[in-house]
Amino acid sequence: MKRLFIIYQGRVQGVGFRYFVYRAAYIMKLTGHVRNMDNGNVEVEVQGPDDHISVFLDTVKGGNGYSRIENYSMKEIPVKPNEKSFDITY
């Protein structure tokens, strides 16, 4: 089990990217959140089994056909043991 903090840069706002990330996390049974940032980037915190997170990362990197990830940064952060869902936050 691990938790990652990820910032995606590129064409990631106004193209359905948050919902795409949400669906990928839901399918993989991951927890956390996704939100737009004021600077045009998208922030994701995602938590779950290592193998599920690997599939999630590959899926998100592939995009939804409208988004284009130009760069991203990622770091491991402490797990939130009582978290139950993945949410789109505003």
Rank of each mutant, 00 (worst) to 15 (best):
16 G>Y: 04
18 R>F: 02
18 R>L: 02
19 Y>G: 02
20 F>A: 02
20 F>H: 05
21 V>R: 00
21 V>S: 01
23 R>W: 06
24 A>Q: 14
24 A>E: 13
25 A>N: 06
25 A>W: 03
26 Y>E: 15
26 Y>H: 12
27 I>E: 11
29 K>L: 08
30 L>V: 04
30 L>P: 03
31 T>N: 13
33 H>E: 08
34 V>Y: 00
36 N>S: 09
38 D>T: 12
38 D>P: 15
40 G>K: 03
43 E>T: 10
43 E>V: 05
43 E>C: 08
44 V>T: 06
44 V>F: 01
45 E>W: 03
45 E>N: 06
47 Q>K: 03
49 P>L: 15
50 D>G: 08
51 D>Q: 14
52 H>K: 15
52 H>P: 03
53 I>W: 06
54 S>D: 14
55 V>Q: 10
56 F>L: 08
57 L>H: 07
57 L>P: 01
57 L>F: 12
62 G>T: 04
62 G>A: 13
62 G>V: 02
64 N>S: 07
64 N>M: 11
65 G>K: 09
67 S>C: 08
67 S>D: 01
69 I>G: 02
69 I>E: 00
71 N>E: 11
72 Y>E: 14
72 Y>I: 11
72 Y>C: 08
75 K>H: 12
76 E>P: 05
76 E>C: 06
77 I>M: 10
78 P>Q: 07
78 P>C: 06
79 V>N: 08
79 V>Y: 11
80 K>D: 15
82 N>R: 13
82 N>C: 09
82 N>V: 14
84 K>H: 09
84 K>G: 04
86 F>I: 10
86 F>V: 11
86 F>W: 05
